[in-house]
Design a protein around this nucleic acid. Structure first.
Lengths: 328, 328
DNA sequence: CCTGATCATCGAAGCGCTTCGACGGACCCT
DNA sequence: AGGGTCCGTCGAAGCGCTTCGATGATCAGG
């Protein structure tokens, strides 16, 4: 009934077996007769026994904890972060692991610390950038890890991310199916393209792959004035444009205004699709179809891959999650 | 330089001392001569030594980890949650502790598990409700803990929260200072009052304490129609009303529309103040002054209190954080 | 009925650390 | 000079678990 202070010896005594036998029942690493196993499990339940995490870590060289490093401070999109954290914790618990939360600003030193102190068995690194000092540290430390996102040099690393190319393709597809003639992708500002080339580039390529002849990609800053201007220029330069994909969260609202100002009726003679979180696509009138970053799935996949690696099972270096188009 | 696999014995050998001496240098629990200490610290740095967390936990009965249980799934206000997590991790690291992330849906069983496995030394429980099964478990387990929020029976527990009564008072004060004659508090729907009486009640009392004769409190659901109706009734029944405090996040936008419909010009002949997150108060035209839930401060205070408790130092059972009014 | 294999269980040896008691030397007091 | 303190350091004993090799017991095959 207690819990606090119950050791494996107590369980062993109550079940009338050796401590090692209890350990084997619990881990299943040697075969134990069903009768003995039952008696042990009953004792465990009676006493409310839980193995001491530290002792277990010391003896087995497995902490039963994985670290999750999140960019907790800056302008990351919050809902995505939460879904991610929630997905990771839930999946980890399914594998009987706990999750240690680290902030990205602990940086490489933080990684070195958790690796050396053996406080965690592995690591999930979120929001990896193209040039990320943590990536080098990771490689040096040899700590099993899974990254969300792709750094410039992913050699030998396990990475998971949304298949952004497919996302671009899905958006183009959607617009073409709606009968749009000319279509365009309104992207992020140049700055974002510069910072994480990979991901914006991949959306562009996917978008253009569908109907390249009549598709264009326009980068665009996200302030109201720039969006207003960009949309105006776009409509002028391509009079037959009737479909627009927007891969720029903060700009979505402004885009809708600019289209309304230009006399386009979205949902009727004009179509818009968003790459971004649900809330953004739901806050407009009319609500827009969207492809979202499936944070929960990403987290689950990352954790699952990490567990595999810890068990010495091979996982693919690179895993791309299929985008899901939500109609509204 | 290595890190992985470096033990205290390696450090001891390199510094030419006994392992226990290294331990004492690191913990400061016995006096060691400066020369020896220097040599040890040099060896630690050279080898990149970090104590093995499991071994340390086993021998010292201190894990160096605290758990943080968050409601990661449901409709909690996200920015608050993130600020909270970020504040807690940062403060914990200052005390050389790590943070284990748990979801509220692990419930009492989760608490029992982490307590019995000694994987954490203490616990921070966020978003405590008036009737919370975890609270009873906590008391039973005797795990050192700090709660954010006040359960019905806080006897013997350490709780931290915003001083909601002061928040109500500050809002009334603000309106009175703006020369408002009659003022009102538009509160949450009855349901919220029912769920966590404490906190809504306390705002009401604070609000009424300032100028009770000319102040009223109106509960209100948060859908557009209800808000529209409530505001209209309010303005009719109190023609001299020129100041309104809104303690109902989702309703704020609707309140502004209703006031505009009624011809009130907020910021000129009418004043509104919000109790809620910054984003809500910033999304209106004009932006509104507001009292926010200081998540980061709450988290830091909670962690600090927990550290104290772990060190056997007394902390107050109940700590109320002063509200801060942000003018805009 | 003996041999060798297989199965279920045990005991002991660590895992890397903290902590307690002990011990020699330096220092102070008389 | 002798006794008592205090200081700095050491060695050994565990913390609670896993894991390895060993040990009986059981059983099939000859």
């Amino acid at each position: 009934m207690a819990g606090r202070g119950v050791t494996i010896a107590d369980v062993a005594a109550r079940a009338g077996v050796a401590a090692s036998t209890v350990s084997y029942v619990l881990s299943g690493k040697r075969s134990i007769s069903p009768e003995t196993a039952d008696r042990v499990m009953a004792a465990v339940a009676d006493l409310g026994y839980h193995p001491h995490a530290g002792a277990r870590a010391l003896a087995s060289r497995r902490a039963g904890v994985v670290a999750m490093m999140l960019p907790l401070r800056d302008g990351m999109h919050l809902p995505v972060l939460m879904q991610f954290a929630s997905g990771a914790v839930t999946e980890a618990r399914r594998h009987d692991q706990d999750v240690l939360l680290m902030t990205a600003d602990e940086g490489p030193a933080g990684l070195a610390r958790v690796a050396a102190s053996a406080i965690v068995d592995g690591l999930i690194l979120m929001d990896v950038e193209v040039r990320d000092p943590r990536v080098e540290a990771l490689r040096r430390l040899g700590l099993p890890s899974v990254l969300i996102g792709f750094p410039a040099d992913a050699e030998g690393l396990t990475c998971v991310d949304l298949d952004f190319e497919a996302a671009g393709r899905v958006c183009a597809q959607y617009l073409v199916e709606r009968g749009c003639g000319d279509i365009a992708l309104l992207g992020a500002s140049e700055a974002v393209y510069a910072r994480r080339t990979g991901f914006a580039e991949r959306v562009r390529e996917g978008f253009l792959s569908r109907n390249a002849a009549r598709a264009e990609v326009w980068p665009c800053p996200d302030d109201a004035a720039s969006v207003q201007r960009t949309v105006k220029e776009l409509l002028t330069s391509k009079p037959e444009l009737t479909g627009l994909a927007v891969h720029n969260e903060p700009a979505v609202g402004h885009v809708m205004h600019a289209l309304a100002d230009a006399g386009r009726r979205v949902g009727e003679d004009f179509h818009v699709v968003v790459i971004g979180p649900d809330e953004v696509a739901e806050r407009t009138h009319p609500q827009l179809p969207s492809v979202l970053v499936p944070a929960e799935t990403l987290a689950e996949t990352a954790v699952r891959h990490l567990m595999r690696k810890l068990d010495g099972i091979d996982v693919p270096d690179s895993t791309l999650i299929e985008p899901q188009l939500t109609l509204r």
